[in-house]
Each structure stands twice: as C-alpha cells, then as structure tokens.
Computed example of a mutant assay.
Amino acid sequence: MKRMISAVVVLAMVLFGANAYAHKEAREMKKGILLVAFGTSEASAKVSFQNIEQKVKKAFPGVDVFWAYTSHIIRHKLAKQGEMILSPAQALATMMDDGYTHVAVQSLHTIPGEEYHDLTMTVNGFKTMPNGFDKLILGFPMLGTQDTVAKAVDAVIATLPKARKANEAVVLMGHGTHHPGNVYYAAMNWQLQQKDPNIIMGTVEGYPELGDVIAWLKTKKSGKVWLMPFMSVAGDHAKNDMAGDEEDSWKSQLTKVGFSCETVLKGTAEYDAFADIWVSQLSNVMAHFK
C-alpha cells in the first residue's frame, strides 16, 4: 500500500512539473539570426560574408545578426590574430543566455554535406534544452532542394565572365566531400550542361576530380579555359589550389597539358545572384516567427 501511495505521489509530481513547464509564462518575442559559415582566414575573401550580411540586415531590419564558423582550424587561426569567432554551439549558448526566444540559424554552406550535418545535430541539441529557445529553426544551405539547384544554375550562367566566348570552356571548382551530399555537384553539373555544354563542375575533395575534368576538356575544341570557384568565398582553395603557381594547382596542371587558363577570384557569395538564394532560404525560416 505504501509503495502504491509513493508511486502516486511521484507520478503527481511529474505531471505537475510537466504541466507547469507546458504552461510556463510566455516571454516577449526576441528574434535573432545566426549566420553559420565554414569560415575563412583570408581577409580579402570576407567581402563575400559582408555582402550576405548586408542583404540579411536589409531583408530583416531590427533583427540582431550574429556569426559563427564551423571550422575549428580557422577559428583557432583567427584567435591567434586577435579575432574571436564563436562556434555554432558557443554562439547559440550566448544567444540563449541573452534571452533570444526565436532564432533562425542560416547555413552559408554550399551543399548539405558534413559541415551542415554536424550543424543540424548542434541545433537539434539546443532544441531539447529546458527553458531554452521558444523556436529554433535551421535554414537549408544554398543547395538544399531541386528549386535551389535550378536557381544556382541560373546564377552561374548569369555571372560568367563577359569576356568569355561561347566556345570557351568554364571549369567550376567546388570543394567536394566524401559525404553523400557530394551528389549535389553531379546534379549541378548535369543541369549546367543542359544550358551550356561547355561548363563543367569539378571538386577538390570529391567527384568529379580534376582528372575527370581534364579528360572532358580534351574532348572540346577550345584551347582556353576559364577557372572559377564554386565556393562562397575565394579563399585558400581558390587562390592556391585553383589559381596558384604551384605545380599541383589546377591552373598549372591544365597549362601543362596545353590549355590556356584565365582565373576568376571571386566567391559565389560576392554575387547577388547567389547571395539571394541564401537569403531566400533564411526568409523561409523567418516566416515561422510571426
């Protein structure tokens, strides 16, 4: 009998606590936006992030905007230079302590790859914290749905160098990944070539590789190749792996096999056509905060 009474008391306390939590006092809405990028330590490349931030602040006036980098290496490197950039977890913890109730976390990654996957787990972890955010929603990276792949294809076509002739090849350098999200590069490649058969997507760390790109280029009659980064910033990969003078850079390897190369050092987020896709993803999230 005593055990039964004890069980009833415990159950009542649990139900009371759950009921109290469910009916906690409503707080005044305080919106915040957390922009999350892989990051860059290249000062000249930060113009990409500045462009996106300006667009975000214009689209959502009065909403506080914060930043976080997913790359520990870049955060550590910047810290040595006196610039402190928080991780997504650190930034969310700070925003929680500061009383933000509705937070939109917008991924500035290009594809839903490993970095985005990890960010998803971080956001989901904060969603379960007691007395935390009322709403916490993560926005897709630039390529997240078929609709945004199509928009990105249009953005590539719209931002091709004006000096490029129609028969000249364009090679886009994506980062690439071993994560299943790498398939988005293949999707981009297919749809790009439906609009312009002289454009190909290659990657540094995924598929298609540079060897695949070179094999494809050799089937083309044009001896000139335009190299462009398909990354949000024109950072280390673009300046060194793509356009560098070292023997293993894409420019050097293409030159070695007989192609004349022109390089464009401009990240996708510097172009309004691409930046607007990320802002559109964020707009889908902010629509839930009304």
Rank of each mutant, 00 (worst) to 15 (best):
I157F: 02
N182Y: 00
H237S: 06
K127L: 09
T268M: 01
E209F: 05
A238D: 03
L86E: 15
H72I: 13
M96G: 05
I74Y: 15
A273T: 04
N189M: 04
E83H: 14
H178R: 13
V183D: 02
Y185F: 02
L15M: 11
M201V: 05
G206D: 01
V171Q: 05
P130K: 13
N124E: 10
P112W: 00
W250G: 02
V63Q: 07
T110A: 05
V257H: 09
K80D: 13
N240V: 14
K55T: 09
V233F: 04
G125T: 03
A163E: 12
V9H: 11
K239R: 15
P141N: 05
S6H: 13
W190P: 14
K290G: 09
A275Y: 09
K57V: 04
F274V: 04
H109F: 02
M96V: 10
E270R: 13
G206H: 02
N182A: 04
F126S: 14
K46Y: 11
Q54W: 10
G176Y: 01
T101I: 13
P197Y: 00
G202F: 06
H117N: 14
A43R: 09
A26H: 14
E205T: 00
N182L: 01
N19Q: 06
P88C: 05
W226S: 06
T268A: 10
S249P: 11
A93C: 13
K221R: 15
V156K: 07
V183A: 08
E209G: 05
P161V: 01
Y271Q: 15
L160S: 06
T145W: 04
M201G: 00
D98M: 08
T203Y: 03
K57N: 14
T128Y: 09
M173P: 15
D212P: 15
Y207D: 05
V149C: 10
P130E: 07
I5G: 10
E28M: 14
M129A: 09
T159N: 05
S48Y: 05
I111L: 04
Q281R: 15
G82V: 05
L210Q: 02
R27L: 12
N19S: 08
A150T: 05
I85C: 00
L35T: 13
L172D: 03
F140E: 12
I277G: 01
E270I: 15
G17F: 11
G132A: 15
Y271S: 10
P141Y: 00
S232I: 08
S222H: 03
K24G: 09
N189K: 12
S107W: 00
A166E: 11
M228I: 09
L265D: 12
A59Y: 03
D134K: 11
M242C: 10
D154A: 07
D134H: 15
V65T: 12
E83D: 12
S41R: 10
A152D: 06
A243Q: 06
T120K: 15
G202R: 03
A26L: 09
N19A: 15
I111V: 07
E205S: 03
L192W: 00
Y100M: 02
N189H: 03
H237Y: 02
K24T: 12
I214E: 08
E168G: 12
S41Q: 08
G99F: 08
W216A: 11
M188C: 06
R164E: 08
G174V: 03
F38V: 02
Y100P: 03
S71Q: 11
D64M: 07
A150V: 10
M129P: 14
V153T: 11
D196M: 13
S222Q: 09
T255L: 13
L136R: 11
T148L: 07
E205N: 08
Q54F: 11
G99P: 04
I214H: 10
K239Q: 07
